[in-house]
Write a protein that binds this DNA or RNA. Structure first.
Length: 810
RNA sequence: GCGGAUGUGGCGGAAUGGCAGACGCAUCAGACUCAAAAUCUGACGGUGGUAACAUCGUGUGGGUUCAAGUCCCACCAUCCGCACCA
């Protein structure tokens, strides 16, 4: 009997069947499983097949967990504040709130095509005042805890977006969003003291089941180093210059000192003869962009004319100024040991400064040095330290220096505090009132949310002021503390504010009293599986961890890491027509593939399978539209096979039983290891195998068919439900009473297997043998089968049961 | 410069140290058809051979092993991250 697969009919019938889902019920007994997607930014371009892939992966995993009997939290929402929405609005003359709503509607339509079992009752939107009330509330709590503070400082400024940026938003000296070169601008800023959490953010990475790559990126971003701060007196003056070094063990080798041009003492260290040159150098450095400073591999510098005294051996060393020293790391000044640091070495060579080696790899005298020696060895030329192991001294030196009173132990971080204010309209207003008498006063919690006012002109001003500053009736208010006339803060929060905590709100999205009910938080949080792209490795994922730790500290939640397991799916790339190379899908390249047409032509199930089949989920892959024909044909064959056995009364044969046990074993193991591409190919293999058996036996038994249906359900839910219903089931195939199929290990093995026979490591023939055959018998059979292919004296015989026979002969 | 990932047919890819190329795409041949599409059957890494078969073959060069795509060493290429953090 031939049964035709009609995806349009089947998918229409089951469309929305899981929206109101009687199978995902919290009966109080089930264990919870929280599977989260990184919520999308609702852009005007809609979703492409790359976005789809992530959502398919998370939905497959969610449905699998559902079938295993978990109560599933699988929500979706919208990260809708931020620059792109605002830029889009400005360009098209539509208010961002309108365009955002339109984009959400379109993307929601597209997401519904995936047939993911999102719980739309939990939907959140970061631009909803009911939501951002709590984004503001968290800010107020941080302000009260001293973690949100105001500061005027030179910050990264994007001249195109006309706003300040966080360190994490500057990539290669360019704006993460628009790729314009970032400049410095002195601005009054709201900062979040994320550095106060540096140690915990670093140490707790060890507790996470995350990709190594992301752990490493965060580790390096936080960049903890151990060392010492040492004061060097300036000769003939009461000034002292404090340096930070991670190599106090090389202190005897310090032959000069370098200050950043921005260091407070830089200009004042110049003497009569050097003043002009020093001033010019400092001025020139201030005119250089970050990119120029980084691009200049050739070191520049200027001698101040002053000398510092090495506090350990009283040596007199010249003080230089150079822009290779960063002003905002450590103390902005360094001691230079050219013998053991590449950068100092290059500087010393260029300006002909002395090089004194203080570590010898072998303890022998070191001659003329061609390059810096950064390894360890025996300490030399270092007075009382001579003869010590440099690695040991590196550990011990900070404490020894501290004992002598010439320095202190010090830990430093690359992580900087988070520049949190944006001079833009489309974001959460920062809930602070500036009172001339009381200073900065937070908006009282019962007055939150502080609603973003409607404005006529939401264009960025570029002056460092937000467009909100132009609305007098909004800006002018009274102090919540003393009632005197006061002004509102007019900066808004960055795009990351809402996304730093949205996953908490999903478990209690309509709570008017609290950010999240503590009981619900304890029950449903944290997130068990978080799926999304790797691009947020040090942005969203770091910020979320910081927020979670803070909310844990103030008792809102009882855990300190938001995402137990993280999975980064690979990008789906287009193919360059000329070179055939993979290229990122982008609007400008015109290589974006929309899923809409493919859903129409092949159906949701086929596209779901193809998104997985295309390659390993964690790797980037190239989209080739032709390939989907293969999975569509597979679904046709599968449907035909299963439905043609509907009336079958074939008794299950040993082969059928073993085949489905093997299938459950294979598919489950591959699914557990997230090898989703091979799960799909596995379905094809087993369908081919079962078709063969069916032809031979005149049909297949019911249990085998139902096992196939249940296994494929998380992947192709429509066709599975259709077939499941055809097999007479009233409940959904996802109903937890059916569970995920199990298998009997003993039945996954055959009694007889085919095994390769090698001579000297090369396969010469294969033989069929019983699995439990003895080594002697196996070898005898192998020799018999080889015949005269086996020549010469036998040196060694290897039999690995179930694997290989190898006979070494000469 | 440092760190990481990747490298297998025409293409996407598969392979707990054990028969390399599963599964699929494309291609070719055959069946069905007036014909085409769809579907079904078969072939499909290179070289030699009608064939059985032989031989070479997983970026390059070495090594370990009875046996290496897989482990080790040294390179090359591509992509990603960090990039004067002292």
């Amino acid at each position: 009997m031939k049964v035709t697969y009609n995806h349009k009919e089947i998918e229409k019938k089951w469309d929305g069947a899981w929206k109101v889902n009687p199978v995902n019920v919290d009966d109080g007994k089930k264990e919870k499983y929280y599977c989260l997607d990184m919520f999308p930014y609702p852009s005007g371009h809609g979703l492409h097949v790359g976005h789809w892939r992530g959502y398919v992966i998370s939905d497959v995993w969610s449905r699998y967990k559902l079938m295993q009997g978990y109560y599933l939290i699988h929500p979706m929402g919208w990260d809708a504040f931020g620059l792109p929405a605002e830029n889009y609005a400005i360009k098209n003359g539509i208010h961002p709130s309108i365009s955002t709503a339109e984009n959400i509607a379109n993307i929601k339509r597209q997401i519904n095509q995936i047939a993911a079992i999102y719980d739309w009752d939990r939907e959140v939107n970061t631009t909803d005042p009911d939501f951002y009330k709590w984004t503001q509330w968290i800010f107020v709590q941080m302000f009260k805890a001293g973690l949100a503070y105001e500061k005027e400082m030179p910050i990264n400024w994007c001249p195109s977006c006309k706003t300040g940026l966080a360190n994490e938003e500057v990539v290669d000296g360019k704006c993460e969003r628009c790729h314009s070169e970032v400049t410095k601008k002195n601005l009054r800023q709201w900062m979040l003291k994320i550095t106060a959490y540096a140690d915990r953010l670093l140490d707790d990475l060890a507790t996470l089941d995350w990709p190594e790559k992301v752990i490493k990126m965060q580790t390096e971003w936080i960049g903890r180093s151990y060392g010492a701060e040492i004061d060097f007196p300036v000769e003939g003056s009461d000034k002292k210059i404090r340096v930070y070094t991670t190599r106090p063990d090389t202190l005897y080798g310090a032959t000069f000192m370098v200050l950043a041009p921005e260091h407070v003492l830089s200009a004042s260290l110049a003497v009569e003869e050097t003043k002009a040159a020093v001033d010019k150098y400092i001025f020139d450095a201030s005119m250089k962009s970050n990119v120029d400073r980084m691009a200049d591999k050739e070191k520049t510098g200027v001698f101040t004319g002053s000398y510092a005294i090495n506090p350990l051996n009283q040596a007199k060393i010249p003080i230089w100024i150079s822009d290779y020293v960063l002003a905002d790391y450590g103390t902005g000044a360094i001691m230079c040991v050219p013998a053991h640091d590449d950068r100092d070495f290059a500087f010393a060579k260029k300006f002909d400064l002395p090089i004194i080696p203080v570590i010898s790899p072998d303890g022998q005298d070191v001659g003329e040095m061609e390059e810096a020696y950064t390894g360890s060895g025996i300490v030399i030329n270092s007075g009382e330290w001579n003869g010590r192991d440099s690695a040991e001294l590196k550990e011990a030196a900070p404490a020894e220096i501290e004992e002598r009173g010439i320095g202190t132990k010090k830990v430093n971080y690359k992580l900087r505090d988070w520049v949190f204010s944006r001079q833009r309209y489309w974001g959460e207003p920062i809930p602070i009132v500036h009172c001339p008498k009381c200073g900065n006063v937070p908006v009282p919690e019962d007055q939150l949310p502080l609603v973003l006012p409607d404005v006529e002109s939401y264009q960025p001003t570029g002056t460092g002021e937000s467009p909100l500053a132009a609305i007098d009736e909004w800006v002018n208010t009274t102090c919540p503390c003393c009632g005197a006339p006061a002004k509102r803060e007019t900066n808004t929060m960055p795009q990351w504010a809402g996304s730093s905590w949205y996953f908490l709100r999903y478990v209690d999205p309509h709570n008017q009293e609290k950010l999240v009910d503590r009981e619900k938080a304890d029950k449903y949080l944290p997130v068990d599986m978080y799926i999304g792209g790797v691009e947020h490795a040090v942005l969203h994922l770091l910020y979320s961890r910081f927020y979670t730790k803070f909310l844990n500290d103030i008792g809102v939640i009882d855990f300190n890491e938001p995402f137990k397991k993280l999975f980064n799916q690979g990008m789906v790339c287009g193919r360059d027509r000329e070179t055939g190379a993979a290229t990122k899908m982008s609007k400008s390249l015109g290589n974006i593939v929309s899923p809409d047409d493919m859903v129409r032509d092949y159906g949701c199930d086929a596209l779901r399978l193809y998104e997985l089949f295309i390659g390993p989920p964690e790797l980037d892959s190239i989209w080739d539209e032709r390939g989907i024909d293969g999975v569509y044909r597979f679904l046709c064959r599968l449907y035909s096979l299963v439905m043609s056995n509907l009336e079958s009364n074939v008794e299950a044969t040993d082969e059928m039983i073993r085949t489905w046990h093997k299938m459950v074993c294979d598919i489950t193991k591959r699914l557990e290891s997230f090898s989703l591409n091979t799960v799909v190919s596995g379905f094809m293999e087993y369908t081919n195998k079962l078709t063969e058996i069916s032809k031979k036996e005149g049909g297949l038994d019911r249990e085998t068919m139902e096992t196939v249906i249940r296994l494929i359900a998380p992947f192709a839910p429509h066709i599975a439900e259709e077939m499941w219903q055809a097999y007479g089931h009233e409940q959904s195939v996802f109903d937890s009473r059916f569970g995920w199929p199990t298998y009997d290990e003993a039945l996954t093995k055959d009694d007889e297997i085919e095994i390769g026979v090698q001579v000297n490591g090369k396969v010469r023939c294969t033989i069929r043998i019983p699995v439990d055959i003895s080594q002697e018998e196996a070898l005898a059979k192998a020799k018999e089968a080889l015949g005269d292919k086996l020549q010469g004296e036998i040196r060694k015989e290897i039999y690995v049961p179930g694997r290989i026979i190898n006979i070494v002969a000469k």
